[in-house]
Design a protein around this nucleic acid. Sequence first.
DNA 1: AATTAAATTTAGACAAATCTAAAAATAAAT
DNA 2: ATTTATTTTTAGATTTGTCTAAATTTAATT
Lengths: 223, 223
Amino acid sequence: MNFTSTEENYIKQIYHLQQEKERVNTNSLAAEMKTRPASVTDMLKKLKNKKLLQYERYRGFKLTEPGKKIALGIVRKHRLWEFFLANKLGFEWDKVHVIAEELEHVSSDELISRLDLFLGNPSFDPHGDPIPDRNGKIPQVKQLNLLSLPLSQQATVSSVTNQTGEMLDMLKHYGIGLGTVLRIIKRFDFDGSLEIRVAKQPPCIITEQVAKNVFVHYAKNTT
Amino acid sequence: MNFTSTEENYIKQIYHLQQEKERVNTNSLAAEMKTRPASVTDMLKKLKNKKLLQYERYRGFKLTEPGKKIALGIVRKHRLWEFFLANKLGFEWDKVHVIAEELEHVSSDELISRLDLFLGNPSFDPHGDPIPDRNGKIPQVKQLNLLSLPLSQQATVSSVTNQTGEMLDMLKHYGIGLGTVLRIIKRFDFDGSLEIRVAKQPPCIITEQVAKNVFVHYAKNTT
DNA sequence: AATTAAATTTAGACAAATCTAAAAATAAAT
DNA sequence: ATTTATTTTTAGATTTGTCTAAATTTAATT
Ligand SMILES: [Mn+2]
Ligand SMILES: [Mn+2]
Ligand SMILES: [Mn+2]
Ligand SMILES: [Mn+2]
C-alpha cells in the first residue's frame, strides 16, 4: 500500500511517542505535529481504517504491527538520508533533519537499498541514532548518559539528544563529536558540573545541562 | 515564493512544451500532465495570478521571465538528481527519471548547491540533456541527429531522446552509450537504415527508427 | 454566411488535510 | 457525589487539486 507524506509523518511521530509512552494521546501528538487535536482525530480514524492503528475514541492509541513496520521504514529512510547529507554532502548535523524530513517521503525502495549500499550500510545517523535495517531491525547499543559514567571510565560519545545548532556550537568548542573518546575526572556536587578530559586535550568543565544530553558507551572490560 | 509539487510539475512541463512551440495550448499540456483540460485551466489561472504565466483565455499561454527562472531551477534539480542516481548509485538511465520526478521537489537550495559540488558540477544528465547552472544558464552544444551526420564523419553520442528501457536495451546491444564514438559507413536509401562503426567494433546496421533518436556532436576540424 | 467540429472554459461536486467552535466524554477537585 | 477542568471528538467550513457535464469560444467545413 501507498501512503501520503502527511500519513507518513503521523505514523513516524506516533512511533517516536510510543517509545516513551506505551499508549499515545491526541494532544501530545497534536503538539508534536504542530497541528490541532481535531485534525489529529481525523487522521487517527483514517489510520485505523487502514489497519495501521489500534484506536478507540477517548482511549488513546498505538501502532499495530503493520503500522510499526511502516514507521520503521520511514525512520530508516530519514536516517539514511541524514547520513548522506552529513557524510557525503558535508552538512552540519543541525541542518540535516529538516531536509531529511522531505527526502524520507521519496517512495522508491530500490533507491533506499542502493543508497544504503552507497553509504556503506551505516548503523547510526549523524546524531548517533540507530538506523533500522531493511527488515526493521534496530542495532542495539547499551548507551549511558554522560552523567552516569563512572569516574575515569574511558568512553566514546555515541549520541546527542539535543540536536540544535547551539548545542553543536558548544560541543564543537569543547572538541566533542560522535566517536570522541573522553572520561570524567571530577564531579562537582555543587552544581552537577563535570571536569572531563576530551581525547588528549587539557581537562575542561562542562555543565550538567550539557552533560545530560550526551550519551556514551564503553566496552565492559576496557579501562 | 514557494510552490507546491503540483505547481512545479506544471511549470516544468509548460517550459518543456515551450521549447517546441512558442505558445502552449491547454489540451497538449493536459495530455502531458495526464490530467483533464478543465484541471489545466484551473491551474493556469493560479499560475497567472502568481505572475508566472502570460495567459488570456482561449488564446494559449507561455511562461513569464520569472516563470522561466522557476522552471529552469526545477529542471536543474531534476537533472542533478538523475546524474546522482546514475553515476553514484548505479541506476540505469531508464530508471532515474521517475525517481528524480520526486526528488526535484525537495526544497533546500543549499542541498542542491552541495549536491552539485559533490557531483563535480556536471553539465549533462544521464540522457545527455544539459543541466542548467545556478543562474539558469544552459550549456549549449550544437547537436546533430545521427541521421544527418555526414558519411564517415567521426562523432560522439551526446544524447538520446527516447529514454525507455527498450531503447536502452537496444543501444546496449550495439555497444552505444553516451560518449561513444562512431561514424556512418553507408546509408541505405531503401529503408533509411545505416551501417555504422561503433568505436572499434565490427560494423553493424541500425534502423532509421533507432538513428533518429540518437544525437551526436563533433568538432569542426576533426576527421 | 451558416453549420459543424474542436478546443477551452465554467459550474458544481468531491477527496484530502486543515481549521474553529461547540458538544461529549473522561479525569480531577471539591 | 457533584461540580469543575481537561481531553477528545464532532460539526461545519476552507484550501488545493481533481473530476464530469454543460456552456462558450474559436476553428474548420460546407
Ligand atoms: Mn517528513
Ligand atoms: Mn537523526
Ligand atoms: Mn516532479
Ligand atoms: Mn534526463
